[in-house]
Simulated assay, not measured.
Amino acid sequence: MSVLKAYRFKIYPDEAQKQFFVATFGCVRFTYNHLLVASQQKKEQKLTPAKLKKEYPFLKETDSLALANAQRNLEKAFRRYFTGKSDFPKFKHKSNPWQSYTTNNQGHTIYLKEGQLKLPKLKSLVKVNYHREITGQIKSATISAKNNTDFYVSILCVEEIPSLPQTSQSITIAYSPSELLEGSQSLLQITFNQDSLVTKIDKVQKKLKIRAKVARKNRIPLAEAKNYQKLKERLARLQVSQKEKKEDFFDQLSYYLVCHFDQIMVDATIIENNQEACTVVFTKADWHCFYKKLVYKSNWYGKKLIDLD
């Protein structure tokens, strides 16, 4: 089965590459917002990135495919709005901690070589944490950054996914706030435990409140309080680690289910009745994240997913 599959890696650009990425984020944001304004004014001639380049020459220095994708994203946002799937498109802001742009692979302009990534318009290769092999054909790459410090790339590929062997087994699963699924610990024969990580997060959050009080007492703005900012960064790293470990568990559990069972039945009615006086490790948002993975993996590997609700 031919599917679209995405791979996400952390990248480590040098200073010149960082400047290129940040400049591209700005140009994409600039293009998106100007096209949004033009669509609201309902001019006779449709504004395009090519026309914007004539008026704003600095746009020529960035990746033209990134600007074209900004236009496509806006058109998609309008389609979702007119079909009632989302609100009216909003302006993109520089203050958003996450910035990104998408570029396409045209004539082998995006590729990985010896732990380095080639991107359009960028002459030098970017160092990447290449921890998973890509076997499919690269279609596009999305560069994203948090606070312009941590950079990532999501590579979209077309891959052939072979169906898994049939097992003639079936299972019924239900949401559990402590295990995600009833009996999931025994299913995987692994232990998912974030107690130590949760304890660290709680301690850092308490210390952060104390540091904030001290800064206010000394009349120091929190943005200028170095100890507060260091602790805030540490808390962010711990929370990212917590999220990544959960997602890794979701991937393991969903893949295990599609490997060992041909028919997976989901008893969604138990979700509402399962909120007992127990420690909530997995929220309903976690459950929906896991369920999405289970849906597409069942489709990929030729297994049947049945919603009993």
Results as ranks from 00 to 15, higher is better:
Met1Asn: 07
Ser2Tyr: 11
Ser2Glu: 11
Tyr7Thr: 07
Lys10Glu: 14
Gln17Leu: 03
Val22Gln: 12
Ala23His: 12
Ala23Cys: 07
Thr24Arg: 01
Phe25Asp: 02
Cys27Arg: 08
Val28Phe: 05
His34Phe: 07
Leu36Val: 07
Leu36Asp: 05
Val37Arg: 13
Val37Cys: 10
Lys42Arg: 12
Lys42Gln: 10
Lys42Phe: 02
Glu44Leu: 09
Thr48Ala: 09
Ala50Glu: 08
Ala50Asp: 05
Phe58Tyr: 13
Leu59Ala: 05
Leu59Asn: 02
Asp63Val: 05
Ala66Trp: 02
Asn69Gly: 07
Ala70Ile: 11
Asn73Ile: 06
Leu74Ala: 08
Glu75Trp: 04
Phe82Gln: 09
Thr83Trp: 04
Gly84Asp: 09
Asp87Tyr: 10
Pro89Val: 08
Lys92Met: 09
Lys94Ala: 09
Gln99Met: 11
Tyr101Asn: 06
Thr103Ile: 13
Thr103Val: 13
Asn104Trp: 03
His108Arg: 15
Ile110Asp: 04
Ile110Met: 09
Glu114His: 13
Gln116Ile: 00
Lys118Val: 05
Lys123His: 12
Ser124Asp: 12
Leu125Cys: 08
Tyr130Glu: 14
Tyr130Asp: 13
Ile138Asp: 13
Ile138Leu: 15
Lys139Asn: 12
Ala141Glu: 02
Thr142Asn: 12
Ile143Tyr: 01
Lys146Phe: 13
Thr149Val: 10
Phe151Gly: 03
Tyr152Ala: 15
Ile155Leu: 15
Ile161Pro: 02
Ile161Asn: 03
Ile161Gly: 01
Pro162Asp: 11
Leu164Gln: 10
Thr167Gly: 10
Ile171Asp: 02
Ile173Thr: 06
Ala174Gln: 14
Ser176Ile: 01
Ser176Tyr: 01
Pro177Trp: 04
Glu179Gln: 13
Leu180Met: 12
Gly183Ala: 09
Gly183Asn: 07
Gln185Trp: 04
Leu187Asn: 00
Leu188Thr: 00
Leu188Pro: 01
Gln194Ile: 08
Leu197Lys: 14
Val198Pro: 00
Lys200Gln: 13
Lys200Trp: 03
Lys206Glu: 13
Lys207Arg: 15
Arg219Thr: 06
Arg219Cys: 11
Glu224Gln: 14
Tyr228Pro: 04
Lys232Gly: 01
Leu235Tyr: 08
Arg237Cys: 09
Lys243Val: 02
Lys246Met: 11
Glu247Ala: 11
Asp248Gln: 14
Phe249Leu: 01
Phe250Gly: 00
Gln252Pro: 00
Tyr255His: 03
Leu257Ile: 03
Phe261Gly: 01
Asp262His: 10
Val266Pro: 00
Thr269Trp: 09
Ile270Asp: 06
Ile271Val: 13
Glu272Phe: 07
Asn274Leu: 06
Gln275Arg: 14
Cys278Asn: 11
Val280His: 12
Val281Glu: 00
Val281Met: 04
Phe282Val: 07
Thr283Ile: 11
Asp286Arg: 02
Trp287Ser: 03
Cys289Phe: 10
Lys292Ala: 07
Lys292Gln: 12
Leu294Glu: 02
Tyr301Thr: 00
Gly302Ala: 06
Asp309Ile: 05
Asp309Pro: 00
